[in-house]
Design a protein around this nucleic acid. Structure first.
Lengths: 135, 135, 135, 135
DNA sequence: GTGGTCTAGACCACG
DNA sequence: GTGGTCTAGACCACA
């Protein structure tokens, strides 16, 4: 498993946004750590069956956000300090909004809130495994 | 509060998808119950500061899914039991996919999985209140 | 004169950077003022004999910087407060660096520093004319 | 200080163009004078943290322009009088274009034209010092 | 080989 | 009609 990213062309969320989310998650879980080289634009494009421009757009956006560092002719690498420092109050508000949105979405899809929570708790360990076995 | 829906034009998720998600959530929580009349296309468009075509498109899609029932010249109403029954195995797979997607999103935004779960559990009671005091 | 922008394909500076520079200059001089609609992506692409994607990329970048406001299906408009608030010290340092770079470039092209200054002073009035005759 | 050149990989202007501009400026100010030996391709590449091919490309271009003279096995030297003479009318046109481009850039960065001119006049003396104390 | 720029052209979301 | 996303493919800058 190179990165276990998967994109769904049927998802109304655009491909580039799905990819950005996936890459950030991989960084946040430690599956990609500081200094690691990302897959090349073209390789990832092939793996995800997506156009290279789409991948390049995401890499550029992450570079813009300071999450990765691009060295032309060499490759793209996870940058030093990712992830935002932010006032705690705002952070909490953001988390609340996110949780509400997720609850709405799950319920909209016909799942009970408790079932969602249960399922989340079930997969969290597996999700975190990705950061194991790293140097 | 007519529906407490809010749409964000900057969200990469298209407006129509945001609206569809919001309406389904309102139905699932009971904020909108069977037989209730939805706002007219034009009224909702004004409330959400969105083009009427966008609202109409969502209503049509929900009608197609059997979630609402449009009676010409009268209005649009919440239909009987929405959500097609589905083999349990498939339901579970869908729930898993949903949970994974949410976990990825939360983690990508810099939140720990456990914090997300905690926050969900905190807001679930408040979320369910919406369905109280109704017929 | 719609905007008096011109791009030079021979310039080693990429087209999108030339365009970004030109648009920002037009805003800074007041040729484009707050609330004004920019040319449509496709129209500007035709005018400048450039691909629409190139223009769109610049508009997106300016939106990202908060210089313009994009409303889908409607158009792109000059946003409220453009241009950076920045510590004066840093500002001065930046201006110095810019001036040095320009001097180097002029001299590299075989012009005397004084001639450059003289020429700048000659064209400054004409440059500022662009902001006249506006409501 | 071997040459006081600095290249910025994030600048949209390509490295080779930045380097060419810097070398020509050094020649024009007299920091490098006729007959002076340039650093070797490899040495300059190391100093500027750039690939040797990039430096070599610039040297070749300058050689092509007659600005430097490469003697195989010995080194690269500043050639006689660089800069082809040019009809005065064309020179003026070129200077105008240069000045306009610079004005646009400064204004785009949020500086007033007059401030740019003032800053230029302030640094011109210091700039010319570089050519003093030489043979 | 790696990322960046640009093009031509299709299709979608929105008004 | 307006901006956004995506594709296929060319060519450039850099190592």
């Amino acid at each position: 498993m190179a990165l276990a990213l998967s994109l769904d062309p049927k998802d109304p969320l655009p491909l580039y946004a799905q990819l950005e989310r996936g890459l950030k998650a991989a960084i946040a879980t430690g599956a990609l750590a500081e200094g690691d080289q990302l897959p090349t634009v073209r390789q990832l494009a092939v793996d995800l069956r997506v156009n290279a421009n789409t991948v390049a757009k995401v890499y550029a956006e992450l570079e813009h956000q300071g999450v990765v560092d691009t060295r032309r002719g060499i490759g793209t690498f996870i940058a030093g300090l990712p992830m935002t420092p932010m006032p705690k109050r705002q952070r909490t508000a953001e988390l609340t909004a996110l949780a509400e949105r997720m609850l709405a979405e799950a319920v909209a899809a016909g799942f009970a809130p408790d079932d969602l929570v249960a399922q989340l708790q079930r997969i969290i360990p597996k999700f975190q495994e990705k950061s194991h076995g790293r140097r």
